[in-house]
Write a protein that binds this DNA or RNA. Sequence first.
RNA 1: GCCCUGGUGGCGGAAUUGGUAGACGCGCAGGACUUAAAAUCCUGUUUGCUGUAAGGCGAGUACGGGUUCAAUUCCCGUCUGGGGCACCA
Length: 1150
Amino acid sequence: MEYNFTEIEKHSKAYWNEHKVYKVNNPAEGETPKPKYYVLDMFPYPSGAGLHVGHPLGYIASDIYARYKRLCGYNVLHPMGFDEFGLPAEQYAIETGQHPADTTRKNTQRYKEQLNNIGFSFDWDREVGTSKPDYYKWTQWIFLQLFHSWYNRTTNKAQPIAELAAIFEKEGNENHPCPQGDSTQFDSATWNSYSEKEKRAVLMQYRLAYQGYAQVWWCEALGTVLANDEVVNGVSERGGHPVERKNMRQWFLRITEYADRLLNSLDTLDWSDAMKEMQRNWIGKSMGAIVKFSLPKNLPPAPPEGGGGDSQALVGRGNQQQKPGWNTADPVLFNVIKEHKQAQKDNPTEAEEILWTQLRGDKLGIKFRRQHIIDRFIADFICLPAKLIIEVDGKIHDQQKEQDAERTERLEELGFKVVRFTNDQVIADIDSVIEEIKKNLTPPSEGEADAQSTQHNTSPSFGGGWGEVSVFTTRPDTIFGVDFIVLAPEHELVAQITTPEQKEAVDTYVQYVKGRSERERQAEVKSVTGCFTGAYAIHPLNNNLIPIWISEYVLAGYGTGAIMGVPSGDERDHRFAKHFNIPITNIFGDKYTGEDAYAEKAGTIQNSGFISGMSIADAANTVIDMLEKLEQGNRKVNYRLRDAGFSRQRYWGEPFPIVYVDDVPYGNDEEPVKSNPALHKLPVELPMVEHYKPGPEGQGPLANIDEWMADNRETNTMPGYAGSSWYFLRYMDPHNNNEFAGRNATDYWKQVDLYVGGTEHAVGHLLYSRMWTKALCDLGHIGFDEPFKKLLNQGMIQGNSYFVKTFLATDEKGYEHNFILSFKNTQEYYTPKEFEHAGVCYFILKDDTPKSKLHTHRLRYAHFFVDTKNRLSKSNFKKSLLIGNGLPEDNFDEEMKYIIWDGKTEEGEEYIQCNSEVEKMSKSKYNVVNPDDIVTQYGADTFRMYEMFLGPIEMSKPWDTKGIEGVHRFLKKLWRLYADEQNGWIVTDDAATDAELKVLHKTIKKITEDMERFSFNTSISQFMITVNELTTLNCHKRAILEPLVVLICPFAPHLAEELWHKLGTKGAQRDSVVTAVFPQFEEKYVTENTKNYPIAINGKPRVEMEFALDAPQAAIEAAVLANETVQKWLEGNAPKKFIYVKGKMINVVI
RNA sequence: GCCCUGGUGGCGGAAUUGGUAGACGCGCAGGACUUAAAAUCCUGUUUGCUGUAAGGCGAGUACGGGUUCAAUUCCCGUCUGGGGCACCA
């Protein structure tokens, strides 16, 4: 009776199926629930290529753990399903005309078969498939919940949008500014005056799933929009096609509102640091400040030719020299006045307060400031863009009419219009005062946001409007080191501020940037380009003139699309200043050498007005406080994270449950759509289409369906990550027709306790799932807000790719043949020696053969074996060598080149030398190892154990079929403890000896510990040791071997099941080993009372001595020192020190 | 460039809290059984020197320093593989 794995695995699988041993039940009502454990794998996308040996690595690990937890008494949920929507199936459909649903069904079927071969404990009754209508019905439903919600920053959670509308009715949006930029403000009266369409346009800017116009990655070749993480190095991740920016109306998820929560709750998760760090980087929180630089209405005269080169006179630092007549404040008096100014601002009169409430926050559609210094005066209120000053005079001004007149005159000289009101006027009749002010305002510039526009925040929102430029900085402490301002070339201010003299140069530069593909821009990241606009801005703290440049190194999409250039403190700015000869202000004293920027955040700030001498942290805070007082800036947190694009112009995805009425999108569960039963229904089923080509104007294929268009349905579909963002919830209650998952089920199973998958989803799937979970939690649909408690990342199993070199040559008859190059020793090239028509043996090159004629061919892994020296030899390689020729995958078999090698080479040489490389397994590299083949040859148990034995689960490692023999031998050896060829079943009921029990319990201890830290490779080592020891002890006792079956069951379930039943008492049926109880470790079997101590001299082990563990140290010391070897080393001297670590070792220092 | 991870025999890897470095397996070499092969079993296998041998002495966990009775493990510096991000202000 030898180990016949084929039969055994057939039996065990049949038993599992028949008895449905992997069925998992939710607790019934009234039942006291068992403790639960949820083990989940990242479900696969069923591609046409099938599974290779790399895929199951994580599944095996999770299966082992799931089985272990079950043996420990948990109710374990361990489901599997398929992520079925996605681009590859659609691409395949376009190429072959087959419906994606058909190919998906076929692929899924094949995946299931392959998975079942390996013997996983999945409960297939809970299988989900994201493309099944009864699944995506709930994907659509969740989308609607997001669509009907907004993020309340006060309560810090998602709430129904209806609640927001109610708030607007009462108080406008003062307390809930628009998350897409703070430009739009309205009060309740204004809100109530809006039409339905206008209201919905405003609400759209708050929804968690919203529509906006945005620059998105458009891939012409694929005819679709791609997500940020689907674009790699400027080309599409799949196919490597070029991509470009395009403005389209798109759906988005407002994941940015969750940025802080996504960041903070990372701390509560048991994920690897690398994984958390990736998410942190992706969210990219940076704390800093917005700084506003005013733009003077009357621009200073353009400096002479040479751009900023001559700007030194204007921006000279030390003496603060300035040209008269344009600035808002007298530089000499500034510091004196500003104290008064602040005092006045802090203590406004009643009238000032009243007026300010009417002017603040762009209420008149244009920005006003109060207590702003102009020349040597403090204007009560000022609108810089309109050059309008409003003065509110108290009684006191009656006595100083003269001064007032002089003041007015001076201000008018500077180009301001001055309007005066008395306190009484303002208090008595504010409305007419406002009317009067309005009359005096020159019309504001265009570019003001209006309520209709749905500006998405990936396009730059340049706060503050006209009259100033806002920059974001994380280093407000360096503000006195600002030597220039740089705008992104796409910045909307560029056109307005560019001087006539610079217009041509700027236009040329902007065109140049536009014409550069993303790829080019990334390729030469370090090159410095840019152009001076001719314009200057006013430094908010010292009123210096700062030249404004544009450059592509400033990104439109981040911050405000503008930066303050501090060359002494930032490398990029330094490069820029050097390149364009912009004078550099040193604010770091000796730390800045002039050679490189001093970018470290240590030391004190120098040469910086009132913050000189402060530490960087203090300076930053002081500057921000000052800017806030002056209303020239504010503290600001910025995130790199952008809202997630949620539209795809594709067919094979979830249709949106959205219908347009008068071009306004409505959820199909709200009026006026709801009343139409045909449109109201969920799911919105994916209709059949005639072809999968994009619709008109870049729309999805759904736009080609007349009926679909007639119903005014949304033509986009959802992206691949929609279905995978919540599938872990559906497993909990997969057949629920009334809810995505019942609250009973989600309250019981809660979070996934262990999630196993690759690192490639670090910022995509894992981030979106977290957001969906948080949103569903906020809205009260589930009771937890993080989906995956512990994350285990399995490494990749790589393939060995082998190459041979061939040479295409023509024979005497004019036929072309591929010749294999034969290398003897090193790469010597010879002339052809032998030739055979059918293909060839080998071909040896002359020295002068052009290298371009050499071809490198990948060898098809499955068809040969090489030895350790990468030699393909005659004995392990029969007749034909199949060589892939870099042909497209699907044509591979037809056009494959056969090269026949008969083993004849130069004298004595019996092999072909191959080159090899370790790389990712993929069909196109011909290095794929199919698990089915391994299972056929060695059995699933061997396969499972070998994958685990390769090394730590999270490490990547190359597949090496040779090593599998060792694990297979081990299982055979294990089997021989139970049965052998001569005697058949040999298990006895004899009592176990102490030595045998010790082996068992040592094993239990080790396996339990290893299991808890997912160290499966060392578990298997332990099993090998155990079996070796039991073999040596000639142990065939049930008392030892039965617990051993349970121990190894998670790893080798087929074998364990078979042995378990054979061990059962004759005739009596017993339950599956899957439901057995994990053996308990008992200390008493392994306790030793002596220890064989290594005795080290000066740390070097020299000899071993055995002592009782409870022996007193003095006795041990005496015995050790008396030892012959120790005596020899002591050379008669007394030891300096004697170190005794109980149970560990002894060290004698001499 | 920044962040995260690694670097141990011919190979995959082990050493869990600072305590006998190289467990376990592969490969390789030699041997047993066999007409032969497969299968199975046994022995050896980090390295240098030394010894007939048992053994002895030394070096050694990428490299150079340090802390310690004791370092693969902790600290500092350098080199290097892998992964992620990348003009993010």
